[in-house]
Design a protein around this nucleic acid. Sequence first.
DNA 1: CACGGGTGCGCG
DNA 2: AAAGCGCGCACCCGTG
Length: 561
Amino acid sequence: MHILLERAAPGRVAVIRHDRDAVEIEEAELPELVRAEEVAARPRWVWSDTRTWYPPLLRAGVRVERCVDLRLSHAILRASTLSARSGLALAPPGSWDDAAHLEEAPVPTSATLFDLDAADSTTTRAQTAALPSAAAEFAAQQDAAATSTEPGRLRLLLAAESAGALIAAEMRHAGLPYSVERHDALLTQLLGPRPRYGRPAIMEELVTRLRDLLETPGLNPDSPPEVLKALQRAGLMATSTRSWELRELDHPAIPPLLRYKKLSRLYSANGWVWLDTWVADGRFRPDYLPGGVVTGRWATRGGGALQLPKEVRGAVVADPGWKLVVADAAQLEPRILTGLAGDTAMAAAGRGRDLYAGIVATGAVAERAQAKVAMLGAMYGATTGDSGRLMPRLARAFPRAVRLVEDAARTGENGGVVTSRLGRSSPPPGAGWRNSQSAASGAESTPADERRARSQARDWGRFTRNFVVQASAAEWALCWMAELRNRLAELTPAGESLTAGPHLVYFLHDEVIVHAPAESADAVAAAVTESAALAGRLLFGGFPVDFPVTAAIVDSYGEAK
DNA sequence: CACGGGTGCGCG
DNA sequence: AAAGCGCGCACCCGTG
């Protein structure tokens, strides 16, 4: 059963059910209504944008089981090759295609809304006014899914994407348990005490030594051009200031320079300012953006949650009496490729063990490291180096898997669109790309035109090659998390709030963290494993590809792995 | 002074 | 050894 929510007059919400007349209620009454329906009917809530509807409910202590996020679903259906002939896909661009109007969380008042509308019809709020009703959009989406070439897959994708939106809001609400004390102790140990102004003492000492050793008194170590010039004056053959390149050089200034760069990164990206900005009340609360990446991966805005350095993960600490269950899907992307290609040889190589070890066991390559670099090369489109050289051997042992990514690459090189397992399609190349291609095939094309066009074609081919794997892996991860979320809810006593029982607190592409009461940690670890197996069946049916996950029960994220 | 491109590095 | 995919963010520096 669906219940559709739509903003009506200011401060009013229309509640629309298919089997009775719409009713209008005060916004303040919404949490109670939702709470009652969750108990009575467990409906699927249909709303424009989870980011605006769900946080107030969570703040009121109300959790919902299922939803349809119309904004995210629209983006998928609009672009998917599976629903390309639907009315939704064929309609001219409308306000549901414009992400900007939905960025605005607050409900505009009718006065400002109509004033702006009259003044400038292109403003964000004016477009909100022109937004077709959620009910009409929902009907169009249901039609697009039903008439698609793969309704089952698309409906699963939309459900998983919407579940992801709920999870993102819940993770922000709950926050990642984070110890300011531990983080501060780490910073103080590595950088010295927090400075009132200027650089931390230990970084300042390194700068002094660096200026001395390179005989450049005013050197700004944060300026790559200045550092490069100073190194060259000191007789070094550096061509950049990248750490991996500097490590090859032999000079007394190199160790302090590398040390400075490492500390400087920590200080600017995850220093005290970051701590003040993003950690409050013992919780790290980044802003997750489900569907924020073209492939369907999540992005974040602010806080750099998806780049939390390994060196600070010791500051992620469970509450007293609680545990962190840190779970990680092993070799996810190669296993996804295995399922996409239906490659039984690769499935056998990965059954019940490390996939790369299994590839070695087939005799295709000699060492695990080679198996890994060859697989990554196949999925990323490496042509040179060790990885490129290993490709023929991989192709001989696993022809189906390699053919799948090669076909995806060729489609992209020709300007085509590729589609993930459940139906997320890649964007078509832009106008600049198409112009380059037609310029190169024109009568007066120069060799430079042709070189550029070929290079861009290959670039786009590498993108589409990786897209099918990365996007399908993102779908697997959403299915995994959605199932896990349901099982965690079952481990929470009825009527209790989200954070009273085990709940998701972190997600990183192929890894999740659950914050769990200690006594439920074993059950959570089992749920993590079972959910992974279910996700594999949802994507690939009976095809026998394993999705093993490691689940570590720890007090601190730093202890996992 | 704001903006945008380039560089470098963190994550998967 | 530093290519080959997807990101976010801080910082520098040239431009308007």
